[in-house]
Write a protein that binds this DNA or RNA. Sequence first.
DNA 1: ATATGTGCAAATGGTTTGCAGTGAG
DNA 2: CTCACTGCAAACCATTTGCACATAT
Lengths: 149, 149
Amino acid sequence: MADPRERLEQLLRALKDQGHRLTPQRLAMLKVIARSEGHPGVEQIYERIKGDFPTTSLATVYKTVSLLKEMGEVLELSLAHVGNRYDGNKPYPHPHVICTKCGQILDPEFAAMAGISQEMARQTGYQITHHQLNFFGLCPKCQQDGQSA
Amino acid sequence: MADPRERLEQLLRALKDQGHRLTPQRLAMLKVIARSEGHPGVEQIYERIKGDFPTTSLATVYKTVSLLKEMGEVLELSLAHVGNRYDGNKPYPHPHVICTKCGQILDPEFAAMAGISQEMARQTGYQITHHQLNFFGLCPKCQQDGQSA
DNA sequence: ATATGTGCAAATGGTTTGCAGTGAG
DNA sequence: CTCACTGCAAACCATTTGCACATAT
């Protein structure tokens, strides 16, 4: 995981460079997104901001997330079960392992995707720009809970 | 791709075996789903049925798709851009290559996922039950359209 | 005969939008 | 000073649900 402090700097610079304004609401959001602890959804981002800056509205969070998406500074995980989640710390495609019971999300190590992506491009003639790789199952804790329950 | 006729038989048997009724609406749907030509969404399934059996309602399509999902007889692709799409012909996880412009979806060949899945399980301690692997980009036709336009 | 399935229309829920007011630049 | 941003509330849209009727078994 990138250093959140550094990542925050990058995000601030990206905003400024593209002529967007830095409001207190956005600063609060960017702090949350720079770490993206636990791959938060819009709702979680909203909750975490309220401490920092209580008057923010959900609509604003949606708008800023959407802006960051367009800028390529957050990765959106569209997960049917769990809703949309975001990663602004590693905003490039990478695999995720998702617990279908508690919703916990991990970033496992897996380097080979670039090669596989090329192979798919060769095989299909598509010009591949990005991908999505998600594994679903039970996390160790939920496996235990299931046994004893 | 599995033979649609055979696949239809399997689906009919699965319904009956699990004590569900076979209505004309369902038969019409199952025919569409057994081939799953182009990985249709609910709306497309609905459109294709109307020829065969015009009084079907959208709600019924949703209900039956949902039933088949629970039965494990269709694979749901949750695609943010393009909406939910279904594959009732190969209802187990397999990779997809999706055109972000026209929405075309291909099933490329790629055998190595089982091994990768195991590796992820070992690395994370998760009990992995299924996965999702999607590649996004431009299909050959849309690449051309983009150049000349 | 019975309860599952259908079809309508209303409810839901996450996300987007319109717009008047606010504040960053 | 201006225009982008905010926040509220209304609009959206895919999906789900409730319920009375129809029908597969």
